[in-house]
Simulated assay, not measured.
Amino acid sequence: MPQFTRRRFLVGSSVLGALGLAGGSVISWDELHRKAATSPLATGAGILVLVTMYGGNDGINTVIPYADNAYHDARPELSYQPQDVLHLDGQLGLNPAMKGFAELWNKQNLAIIRGVGYPHPDHSHFRSMDIWQTASPDSPVATGWIGRWLDATGDDPVRAVNIGPVLPQLVLGEKHTAAALDPTTTPLTPELSTALAGLAATDPHDSPAQAQVCAGYHAEQTVTQTFSWLGTKPAAPGTNPLAAQLELVGRCVKAGVPTQVYSVSMGGFDTHADERRTQQQLLGRFDQAVSAFLTDMSGHPRGRDVVVLAYSEFGRRVRANASQGTDHGTAGPVFVAGAPVKGGWYGDEPSLTDLDNGDLKTTVDFRDIYSELLHRVIATDPGPAVGVARHELGVIT
């Protein structure tokens, strides 16, 4: 095996290259119990789980205005008949695949925020998701809203964790990022771990760039020691990927890991054709994963402090296209669920006839939701992350 010197490693290191930022950490699986035992999350501390639904989920066929004739007129073959919908009241209901969410609604642990979007909406997947993840509709910025919270509140590399090897923009800050917990990572051999030991030690002769790499390696060691006890095991064929991600989150929460924000995701919601079958399958997986996770959390003392936010970069247009799908739209529903949630409707239901060039008009700014979650769940000042003077909706009890 080649011999490593600290300076040779630091000069040529690409440890952080995959993340693009100094201070980023890829989580492996050594000694999580030690971190949870020595600095567990304080009892009663809120935990926020962010679920990103990539592709632009069709909110109109998710929270369905089954009693509105305009819905059936705009989608004569794509619409759901009233008898097929999971009724929430006399006007609206859930997609038939979302039985678990219907139960959460009945338990008053599900808030549905209607008409969520931002001013001057963009139909591009990339730009719209960038806006949602940076909370900056007016101009592009490099940092995400969770990343700015990390920058403002300290340097512990496990305060926020993304499940998966690629960090979404929402968790990137100028100085700090979330840790990336990749369940497919192969642990380092004892030989390599020994060879790399000590590389995180400071050296007064380091250049600023070398010191940044050193700091990043030190953060990686901290994360490694925090999460190792979970162990890794490949997902069985046919496993619901979102359920597998949330299962890892649940294990971390129960262990008392000092993480307050987790990020998970699923894709496939860009339903330009054959939407009804495709979306219903996706919503079924989404519903099964999230509702099972929250049921599991409800039985654990720490889990009862968990709140889930589920969102997509935009909704779809009101009228179906010629391929029995829908094209990129604007506003859509956002779900907030968990024991601390005051269930019910929030935000005005957008009109299906008073449209903006075929699109729904936004009735709730998504930054208001972020602000309340930071304030009420994370117990932090939301200003550095999403700005001041936001309007809370009263979703969190």
Rank of each mutant, 00 (worst) to 15 (best):
G154V: 02
G154Q: 01
D155K: 08
D155E: 14
P157T: 02
V158N: 02
V158H: 04
V158L: 08
V158W: 05
V158R: 05
A160V: 07
A160F: 02
A160S: 13
A160E: 03
V161M: 09
N162K: 11
G164E: 01
G164P: 03
V166I: 14
V166E: 09
L167W: 06
Q169D: 11
Q169S: 11
G173M: 02
G173N: 00
E174V: 03
E174F: 00
K175V: 01
K175Q: 13
K175Y: 07
H176M: 06
T177C: 09
T177L: 04
T177Y: 13
T177I: 13
A178F: 06
A178E: 05
A179S: 15
A180T: 12
A180L: 05
L181P: 04
D182M: 03
P183C: 02
T184M: 07
T186I: 13
T186R: 15
P187F: 03
L188M: 13
L188N: 06
L188C: 00
T189E: 07
P190V: 01
P190A: 07
E191Q: 14
E191K: 14
S193Q: 09
S193W: 07
A195G: 04
A195F: 08
L196R: 08
L196K: 04
A197K: 12
A197Q: 11
G198C: 01
G198H: 00
A200N: 04
A200I: 01
A200S: 13
A200V: 02
A200E: 07
A201T: 10
T202I: 12
D203I: 03
P204F: 14
H205M: 08
D206Y: 09
D206I: 06
S207F: 11
S207D: 10
P208S: 05
P208F: 05
P208L: 08
A209N: 09
A209L: 13
A209R: 10
Q210C: 13
A211L: 13
Q212L: 10
C214E: 10
C214Y: 01
C214I: 11
C214W: 04
C214G: 13
A215H: 14
G216I: 00
Y217G: 01
Y217W: 10
Y217H: 10
Y217T: 01
A219Y: 11
A219R: 14
E220M: 15
E220D: 01
Q221R: 09
T222C: 02
V223A: 15
V223L: 03
T224A: 15
Q225H: 10
Q225R: 12
T226R: 03
F227P: 06
S228H: 15
S228N: 15
S228Y: 15
L230S: 03
L230D: 14
T232Y: 07
T232I: 11
T232Q: 09
T232S: 11
A235G: 05
A235L: 00
A236E: 03
A236Q: 08
A236D: 06
G238K: 02
T239P: 03
T239Y: 01
T239S: 14
N240M: 00
N240G: 00
P241Y: 04
A243H: 06
A243E: 12
A243P: 02
A244E: 07
A244V: 00
